[in-house]
């Protein structure tokens, strides 16, 4: 097997080099013209990033909310919890959620919350049993509550890096996902975010800082049956984002 693999690798690379080495008749292939055209729409003048994010999220079937302060954010969240009759929630803790005292608000509302601690947490790996328990909890939950590292205004996208305390599947398994994001975390577009991502995730020059960088935009959707748009096929059918204004975070 090992030899076959080495052979296959060498044979493929040798063919590529031999064939690329052959100069094609230049007139056959239309050469690409260098272009620096942006990969994003220019924001309409006079609009704020938060307003654009909300409009984009709404357009793809998500539910945007604006909160002036923490109290309003909690009120919006608790309304959603009541409306959707949420009994069990999984909370992916983050500094913002901690600051806004989301956990105690949920508990006071009688929601059974499993919190996954943010940051480095306890050193060492999780055992298979611990991981199985977390998966079972996420599968049984009615709602996942998280923050995001960034939000993209143009497309209404949340940027979620998997890490200790942020499982890849946790926001996708329950039927609903609510994310709370500070307005200051909103960037205009993906293209502008890439340098920031590279700086944040490649910091010390070692390997990429997350095993899975996830972009999530609105609810899970499909149009595979008769081209009819339907939501909630594998992931959540309800995707709410509460944008929290930057001033007066603690009221």
């Amino acid at each position: 097997m090992a030899t076959t693999q080495t052979n296959a690798r060498e044979a493929i690379l040798a063919r590529i080099r031999a064939h690329l080495g052959k100069r094609l008749d230049e007139s056959v292939l239309e050469p690409a013209h260098p272009s620096d055209a942006p990969a994003y729409a220019l924001p309409a003048p006079g609009t704020t990033p938060a307003a654009r994010f909300a409009a984009a999220l709404e357009k793809v079937g998500g539910h945007p909310h604006r909160a002036q302060n923490g109290a309003e954010a909690r009120r919006i969240l608790l309304n959603l919890v009541a409306e959707r009759k949420v009994q069990r929630a999984i909370l992916l803790d983050a500094p913002l959620l901690h600051d806004l005292e989301i956990l105690s608000a949920l508990q006071q509302a009688g929601v059974e919350v499993l919190t996954i601690a943010a940051g480095d947490g306890p050193a060492g790996d999780l055992s298979a049993a611990e991981r199985a328990n977390l998966r079972a909890a996420a599968t049984a939950a009615d709602l996942c509550i998280s923050s995001a590292d960034y939000a993209i205004a143009e497309s209404g996208t949340l940027v979620l890096p998997a890490r200790r305390g942020f499982p890849r599947a946790a926001p996708v398994l329950p039927p609903a996902h609510v994310a709370l994001v500070r307005e200051s975390q909103i960037v205009p577009h993906l293209e502008g975010l890439i340098p920031q991502l590279k700086a944040a995730l490649k910091g010390n020059g070692s390997r990429w800082g997350t095993s899975c960088l996830m972009f999530t935009t609105g609810p899970s959707r499909t149009a595979d049956i008769e081209q009819t748009l339907t939501i909630g096929v594998h992931g959540p059918g309800d995707m709410d984002v509460i944008l929290v204004a930057d001033q007066n975070p603690e009221d």
Binding site: I116, L134, I152, S155, A162, L190, S211, L213, F215, G218
Partner: peptide, 18 residues
């Protein structure tokens, strides 16, 4: 952009739940 763009950089790392 589509609803889910997933950028996988390696398997689970120690401490990650999935």
């Amino acid at each position: 952009i589509t609803s889910y763009v997933t950028c996988v950089t390696g398997p689970r790392r120690p401490g990650e739940a999935d």
